[in-house]
Structure formats: structure tokens, C-alpha cells
Design a protein around this nucleic acid. Structure first.
Lengths: 341, 341
DNA sequence: CCACCCTCTGAGAGCGCTCCCAGAACGAAC
DNA sequence: GTTCGTTCTGGGAGCGCTCTCAGAGGGTGG
């Protein structure tokens, strides 16, 4: 039972005194107890309990130069990035893995270029051991700002080509997943397979488009329509597609939200899914997939796991363990067959 | 232009040497420069720039016992709390205000009672100067855990009655807002005003119910129906109400999401809004309010501002400035008239 | 019984900073 | 010119911890 003295917090010195050992031995015990004989370990442990000792983090950081904290940089270029379920899952994965590593999550919310200076100062100030960031728009200046601080960083999502040559990142196999989706439509015997792509300044959208093209090497350009990853844009893109190519019999949509919009348009127009037009999405986002009708066949990716992998990669970077070169991770995707294709 | 030496980061000592002053003077300049003659200030400033000096946070914390970080405790008792737009707004307000105070946001994600120990250790470990938490369910053990760490804390939302007597909190005037909403319905000449309440283990729901009762002191119990703040529960509660009291001519719903559900039910049953039944919600959540038809009359609360106020209150607590006693803040609400009432 | 070796322990030196306090410097007043 | 007062400056201690390194202690083999 910790002594509830209201005084200053006990120091290692106090613990050592109480246990009848030196500060060094007490320190060893507190940090795992390797190389200390069991009876002494026991004595120190008891002293720690009795005193309610908690190590002083600042003092430890001062000498070890490690502060057990990782920054998660959340940029909010336009709207609600935070309330995005995608983001939530990824941050949850990060949080869990960080906890497993006994590290803290420092949230850096970037609202615009005006914050870049502050962020750079913070990252460069040695407050955190490393950073986790997300690749957003290709034209974002943030990656360069982060890069300049020379702090270890891992990205979620493949960064834009312009970014520093080889920053480590974790991304799902967007291209491969897209290929699988399109191949499935081909196997279904569909002939006029369209694609509704995402914004062309996001690598995930680009990669998915590439995957589509990999399979349909000379797909007619009229089978391509672009959205911006929102439900409304998916509905609009589908309408355009239908107007342009009434013979379309399948669509691979770059994300579930747009696929949901496309499904709405198809229903409005009395087009049967999957009989007339088969639809495949991407993401396998529970909240979307559940409520579409028919239920959406889509490409699944384990977002939470990607968050965890980001942390693991960063930790390996920090430990100096593992490959010095920034080995990125591409996680596999899998096609989940439901009713829409 | 900072010297891009790859070596160890420059210390205050180095700055002092370069500026030809003592470490103490350099420190004074770095911390505002009060009581140092202008020419010396200038010299030190230049040295700082030339060396690219950044203060070592750990060393500073070690002596000042202040670490410029605040924990935001996010408990996720059941589902997606994070992707809740309510939460996002509040966290945004917190983040902005924290930035204004040069403080960092450390995110503590609590997934269940199993994390309580870890959280207590972290909060008690002096990693952060204070904490921000949210009052959730009345039966949550977390507040007690936080309280025991004796760390300054401010809650978002009025804590459950069982919580430590007088913890400071920021909440909107749930009761007053509810009163205003109900009075509006009364003024409209409605006679059978029902209420769809939220879960009875959340103080916001309780307070709103109280507000309803304040105005309708002897409302018939058949005019009360309970939901759980979800859209579906609102739809269900409205259906029950309609079955039980076909003569109902107005409903005050405890939040917008449930009001949206209620609106759906009313439309399904061919009940005209507001002609037959007037509906008032609570929260004025942009994402919900926009898409209902008719547009929803509701009680507005400034959520982001509440987040900022939480930080301001905490900072005052930490400064020792302001009232020693935990003065909570109740922010005003306002009725926003739209088409549903 | 002594020499030797291996394991454990403790003394002490910092990590980079703030802040107290003594004293330098300078000006004003007599 | 001397003294006093005020304003600035610098020396130094110490925040709580880790880590190196020398040496204590105990076991084993000759």
C-alpha cells in the first residue's frame, strides 16, 4: 500500500535508501532487474510499492535521450479527416501498438501551412522519438517540412512521388487489389467494365486506377469517370458513365463510399445489380458495406493492422534494429464477395 | 542560417559561449529576456539563430516540474466515439486552444477497465501537467481512477453525481436549452408535447429530460419515450409514441440523431411536420440538421468553444491563477428555428 | 588454503537546464 | 572623490536519473 504522503514524490534515492541498496541497483531493478540477485530485487520492489515510487520521466529522458513518445501528425487539409472511419481505425491500431511498446501518442493537428513552422519546431525539438504521418494530397508541403526535421518518420499510404526518395511507408496493395477486383469482373464474363476513380492527387486513387489498367490494357477512355471519394461524386460519376456508355455491364469503383453512391444511381435508373451491372468497391468499410443494397462486393484491407505496422516499422527504425534502409510494407488485400458482383 | 552540423544539438552552454555571456544570461534571453540589457539580448538571439539552438525539453522539465503537455483521455466504452462529429469538434477546440498555450496534446485512448492501471500510472507519473476527460456513463469507473491520481483535470460534460464532489467541468446548459425548446413548442400552441429522452446514465440526457419536466410539470408519462441517442432508437421511440398517443402534436427529442430518426418515422406514417407534429432536436449537429426534411429546429451548442473552455479552465487551474475552487462553466445554448417546428 | 575468475554492487560523473544569490558595474548624490 | 543604491551578470548548486567502471564478494580449481 503506497504511503499517501502528500509531500514531494519519492525519488530513486529514497527507494534505494529504503531497500538498503545503492541508487544504481535500485535503477537496475526498476528497469527490469537484469543482473541483480533475486533477494535484492524483491527488496527494491517492495520499497517501490511502499513508497509509491514512479520514475521521473524527464530525468530519464535527459540521460537516455529517448522520451517514449511518438507524434501522430494529422493534417486536415479540407474537412473532417478525423471523423473519417478510415482514420479512426488506423489511429486505433496505432494507439494499441504504441501502448504495447509503452510509448505515448502525441497528437499534432495541422490545420494548414501556417502550422508548419510550429510543427517543425516541435518535431525538431526532440520532444518525440519519431513521427507517424499520412500521405494526403500530392501537393502538400507538409512531408517536406517533416523530412527537414530529420526525425524518423513512417507514412501511412504511399507518399507522393515528389517526396524524399525513400521514406518508409505502410500501404495496402492498392494496385494488386484493384487487379483482383477487375479480374473478378472479367471472370464473370463482363465485357464493358468501367472504373470510377478517385482524385488524381492521391496515390491510392492512382494506384487503383493503375490496377484497373493492368488488367484492361486498352480499356476505352469513355469507360473512365472520376470522383473525389465522396458518395455524391460516385453517384454523379455513375450517371455520367450510364449516359455515355449505356452498354456498361460492370464498374470497379475506387472506394466504397463512391460505390454506394453509384449503387444509388443504378437503382434510381432501374438498373439491376448485379444482373445488369456488377459493382465492386474498395476498402471494405463496415459502415458503408452493411447498408448498401445489394450488399457490396469489395476489396478488403486491414486498416487497423496497417496502423500497427506503421508503429512497428517506426520502432524498428528507432531501435536501429532491422534494415537500415527504409523497408516499406505493402499489406495484402482480399476480395470479399457479396451480392453486388 | 543555422549551422547544419550533424553533431549533437547545441546546448545553452554553447549559445552562451558564442554570445560571450554566461549560461544564466543566455537562459534569461531564451525565456523572454526580461532584465537583460538590449545589446546582450541581441547577441544571444543571434547566437541562438546561428547555432540553431533548441532548448532541451527534458532538462527544462526536470527543473521546472512543468512539461507543457496535457492528456486528453478518450474512453471508448462501446463504439465509435472518435468518429463522432461531436467529439471531433470538441477535440479540435481543445487542440487549437492548447496550441495557443504552447502545450501539447497527449492522447490517451482507454479501451476498457483493463487500461485503467496503465492510465493511472501515466497520469500519476508526471508526464503531463493536467488532463481533460469526458463524462460518459454514470457507471464508468474511470473518473475515480483519474481522481485518485490527484492530477488537475477538467471534464467535458457534467460528471455523474457519484463523482468526486466538485470536479470542474464544462457543459452546455442542457436543462435551460431543453426548457427553451419545450417552451417554444408550448408557445406554438401545442398541447400534447412528448419527449424522446436519451440513455438515463448520461447526465446530458438526464438534464434535458429535467428541462422538459421543468416546463411541463405534470406531463403524462405516456408522452415519454426513451432512446439511446442513435437514429434507429429515435425512429423506434417515435413509433411507440405514435402508437400510444395518436394525439401527440409535438416532440422534443434529446438529440439531433434521434430527431432525424423520429422524422423518418413520421414521414413513413404520413404525419406532416410541422403541421401535425412539431419536432425540436438538440445539438445542432451540422451533418444531421442539413439532411433532414424538413430541416430541423434544434438547440444549438458551441461544441468547439466548449473544448477551448476546457483548456482555459485547466490552464487557470495549473497557473494557480483564478479561483482555487473548481469553478465549472455552463455555456449558453440557443434555439435555432428551422422548418420542423 | 590460496589464487583466480566471474558475478554483483555502488560510487560518481554527468545529461541540460533554471534559479538563487553574491558580487560587478555603473550612475547619482553628497 | 567617495559612498550608496540600483541594475545586471555569472558562478554554482541541484533537479532525478542512467551508466561506466572499479572493486567487493563468493565460488571453484589447483
Amino acid at each position: 500500500m503506497p504511503e499517501q504522503t502528500t509531500g514531494p514524490r519519492p525519488t530513486l534515492e529514497a527507494v534505494a535508501a529504503r531497500a538498503g541498496v545503492s541508487r544504481a541497483t535500485a535503477s537496475r531493478v526498476v528497469n527490469g532487474g537484469a543482473g541483480v540477485r533475486p533477494p535484492l530485487v524483491e527488496k527494491v520492489r517492495r520499497a517501490v510499492d511502499e513508497l509509491g515510487y514512479v520514475p521521473n520521466h524527464a530525468a530519464r529522458t535527459l540521460v537516455t535521450r529517448r522520451n517514449g513518445a511518438v507524434a501522430v501528425i494529422i493534417a486536415e487539409p479540407e474537412f473532417r479527416i478525423f471523423s473519417d472511419p478510415f482514420f479512426e481505425q488506423q489511429v486505433r491500431g496505432i494507439s494499441r501498438e504504441l501502448t504495447a511498446h509503452d510509448a505515448q501518442l502525441v497528437l499534432l493537428w495541422v490545420e494548414g501551412p501556417g502550422d508548419h513552422d510550429r510543427i517543425a519546431r516541435y518535431l525538431g525539438g526532440g520532444h518525440v522519438d519519431g513521427a507517424l504521418a499520412f500521405s494526403l494530397h500530392n501537393d502538400d508541403a507538409l512531408p517536406a517540412v517533416i523530412d527537414r526535421t530529420r526525425i524518423p518518420v513512417v507514412y501511412g499510404g504511399r507518399p507522393a512521388p515528389g517526396t524524399s526518395p525513400a521514406v518508409p511507408f505502410v500501404d495496402c496493395d492498392n494496385r494488386g487489389g484493384a487487379r483482383e477486383a477487375v479480374r473478378h469482373l472479367v471472370d464473370l464474363g463482363r465485357r464493358n467494365i468501367a472504373h470510377i476513380s478517385g482524385p488524381d492527387d492521391q496515390t491510392s486513387a492512382i494506384d487503383r486506377l493503375h490496377g484497373y489498367r493492368d488488367v484492361l490494357i486498352d480499356a476505352d477512355p469513355t469507360l473512365l469517370s472520376r470522383g473525389d471519394f465522396t458518395e455524391e461524386s460516385g453517384a454523379r460519376a455513375m450517371a455520367e458513365l450510364l449516359d455515355r456508355r449505356p452498354d456498361v455491364d460492370a464498374v470497379f469503383v475506387a472506394n466504397d463510399l463512391m460505390a454506394s453512391g453509384a449503387l444509388l444511381t443504378l437503382r434510381e435508373r432501374g438498373v439491376r445489380v448485379p444482373e445488369d451491372v456488377a459493382v465492386v468497391g474498395f476498402d471494405d468499410m463496415a459502415s458503408v458495406v452493411r447498408r448498401t443494397s445489394p450488399s457490396l462486393t469489395t476489396v478488403h484491407q486491414d486498416i487497423e493492422d496497417m496502423g500497427r505496422l506503421m508503429v512497428k516499422l517506426l520502432m524498428r527504425l528507432l531501435d536501429g534494429t532491422g534494415p537500415a534502409s527504409p523497408a516499406s510494407v505493402i499489406t495484402p488485400t482480399s476480395l470479399v464477395l457479396r451480392d453486388s458482383a
